[in-house]
């Protein structure tokens, strides 16, 4: 479990890295084809999805991939400005030193659900608007991508749209 204290420290250090490490980070940043998530953003969403949707996602096969595909479609539908802001955010979180500092997570695939949950909770109430915004973006993207899919509706007793013709 990452403690609140670590987050406060990470917040301060994170600010320094974000301020001073921009060039280094920009040079190493991974690019993805238009409309697609980068490989590191995909692995981040693969890790975050089952945690964000704990207690709802269930065991169905391929569900996580379908949510991540939905996130990818949702991002591709945003304004160019929002897409570029998200690309910056995903780039930062895909950048090992920043990710390690802000979340304590080295590799998304090796992180435990408890670590990820602690990261999300930390961002949610962080005093840095950047991280609060990161949490809000993950929240809306992952939950929106899941509840857009008809397979999510039975669990919430939503019958789907009626027939009109």
């Amino acid at each position: 479990m990452t403690s609140r204290r670590t987050f406060i420290k990470a917040g301060l250090l994170g600010g320094l890295v974000l301020g001073a490490g921009g060039v280094w980070y920009a040079a190493s940043r991974e690019q993805a084809p238009a409309g697609r998530l980068t490989r590191s953003a995909r692995s981040m969403f693969q890790a975050i999805t089952p945690v964000m949707l704990a207690g709802m996602l269930g065991e169905g096969s391929g569900r996580i991939e379908r949510v991540v595909d939905g996130v990818e479609r949702a991002v591709a539908g945003l304004s160019a400005a929002a897409q570029s802001e998200l690309a910056d955010l995903f780039g930062l979180l895909g950048f090992y030193p920043v990710r390690k500092l802000l979340t304590g997570i080295g590799d998304w695939r090796l992180a435990t659900p408890a670590d990820i949950e602690a990261s999300l909770s930390g961002w949610r109430f962080h005093h840095y608007a950047l991280l609060q915004g990161a949490y809000a973006a993950m929240h809306d993207l992952v939950l929106g991508a899941w509840y857009a899919q008809p397979e999510s509706w039975e669990a919430i007793a939503y019958p789907g749209p009626p027939e009109v013709r």
Partner: peptide, 16 residues
């Protein structure tokens, strides 16, 4: 579902 779930606060068990 989408508008409601994204507007609602929280995640994981709280949200579910």
């Amino acid at each position: 579902p989408v508008l409601f779930s994204t507007t609602l606060q929280g995640f994981a068990a709280e949200h579910a």
